[in-house]
């Protein structure tokens, strides 16, 4: 068995995931691309089980299981956020999400002037 094959497959999947995260505008599609990246990592972990002789056998597979669980949790929370976003804006385009928006309670206060004379 040549481990380079699954490794390269995992690398290409990861690249596709990155591309998807950056390219996609729809939040659900972004989540899907994230799933692709997670799976690429899982593939690397499982493949590493065959190439790396660790003290504890099957460590990579155990980690893969953990990652799957984490992915399940992530997709659950992520979808909840997506739905909330949709409820607020009736759109799931990530373009409209501003990272610097102040919390609602501080919106009334004037913004601090950066340079005072």
């Amino acid at each position: 068995m040549r481990p380079v094959i699954p490794y390269v497959v995992a690398a290409l999947l990861f690249g596709a995931g990155v591309y998807g995260v950056l390219r996609r505008r729809n939040a659900v599609l972004v989540l899907m691309a994230v799933e692709l990246m997670l799976n690429a990592v899982n593939l690397i972990l499982v493949t590493a089980d065959t190439t790396v002789r660790a003290t504890l056998p099957h460590g990579g597979q155990v980690f893969a299981l953990f990652v799957i669980v984490l992915a399940a949790a992530e997709v659950g929370v992520g979808l909840a956020i997506v739905l909330q976003l949709y409820r607020l804006r009736s759109s799931v385009a990530v373009d409209t999400v501003r990272l610097d928006a102040a919390p609602a309670s501080e919106l009334d206060e004037p913004r601090m002037v950066a340079h005072e004379r």
Partner: peptide, 13 residues
């Protein structure tokens, strides 16, 4: 996206 994604995928590969 293509640059970064391609760079990441092909670089890792």
């Amino acid at each position: 996206a293509a640059l970064i994604g391609g760079g990441a995928g092909l670089g890792l590969a």
